[in-house]
Amino acid sequence: MSSKHHKIRVGISIGDFNGIGPEIILKSLKDKSITDFFTPVIFGSGKLFTYQKNVFKLQTNFNYINEAKEAQAGKINMVNLTKENSNIEFGVPTEESTKMAIDSLNAATEALLNKDIDVLVTAPINKDEMMKYGFAHAGHTGYFEEKAGKKAVMFMVSEGLKVAVSTHHIPVSDIVNHITKDNIKKQVKQLVATLKEDFCVEKPKIAVLGLNPHAGDGGVIGKEEIEIIQPAIQDLFDEGIMAFGPYPADSFFQPEKYKAFDAVLAMYHDQGLAPFKTIAYEEGVNYTAGLPFIRTSPDHGVAYDIAGKNIADETSFSEAIFTAIDIFKSRDEYQELRAHRLRPKATHANHGVDEDLPKES
Rank of each mutant, 00 (worst) to 15 (best):
D235S: 07
V220Q: 10
K53S: 08
E70Y: 04
S158Y: 00
T94F: 08
R341Y: 09
L195D: 13
T141F: 05
K132H: 01
L236K: 07
D235C: 08
I221T: 09
D31N: 11
H169T: 05
E110K: 11
I179R: 03
A207M: 15
I306R: 01
M242P: 01
A138Y: 06
D235P: 03
V353E: 12
D36I: 02
K127R: 14
A320H: 06
D198P: 10
D305Q: 04
K345A: 06
P246H: 08
T296H: 01
G245T: 13
L209Q: 07
V121S: 03
V163L: 11
A73M: 09
N126W: 12
Q187A: 05
D103I: 15
T35L: 02
G139C: 09
G210H: 05
M242D: 13
V201H: 09
F62P: 04
Q187L: 10
T82K: 09
E319P: 00
N310D: 12
A260N: 10
I221P: 06
N106D: 14
K329H: 00
E129L: 06
E96I: 15
S45H: 04
T122C: 13
A71P: 01
S3E: 02
L29C: 05
G46Q: 10
S97N: 03
D198F: 10
N61Q: 12
E84W: 07
Q234R: 09
G245V: 11
F317D: 00
E23S: 07
G301A: 07
T141Y: 04
M242A: 09
D116A: 13
I229W: 00
G245H: 08
F328A: 15
K162M: 15
K223L: 09
I226N: 12
K205Q: 12
M154Y: 05
N18E: 08
V157K: 04
P231E: 08
L291F: 10
V165H: 03
L236E: 07
G352W: 06
A312S: 12
G301D: 05
E224V: 01
D128E: 13
V302P: 09
I321V: 08
E89F: 15
K277I: 00
I20W: 04
F37Q: 00
F276Q: 01
T180N: 02
E360M: 08
K75Q: 12
N66V: 02
G290P: 05
K53Y: 00
K127W: 07
K196T: 03
K329V: 01
I34R: 00
A260C: 05
E239F: 11
V79I: 14
G272N: 00
G272R: 00
I327M: 11
F90Q: 02
S13L: 13
I233D: 06
E239Y: 05
H351R: 03
E159D: 12
I325M: 02
G142H: 01
V10L: 02
I170Y: 02
A232E: 03
E282M: 04
L26S: 08
I221W: 14
I229C: 01
H178N: 06
A349L: 09
N286R: 06
V285Q: 00
H300W: 11
Q271P: 01
Q190Y: 06
E129P: 03
S28Y: 02
I327H: 12
L342A: 13
T141L: 06
K196G: 03
G44L: 04
E360G: 03
I125V: 14
S13V: 15
A68L: 05
S86C: 15
N126P: 07
Q190M: 15
G219T: 14
S316N: 02
T109G: 14
E23T: 08
K127F: 07
E146C: 03
Y143Q: 10
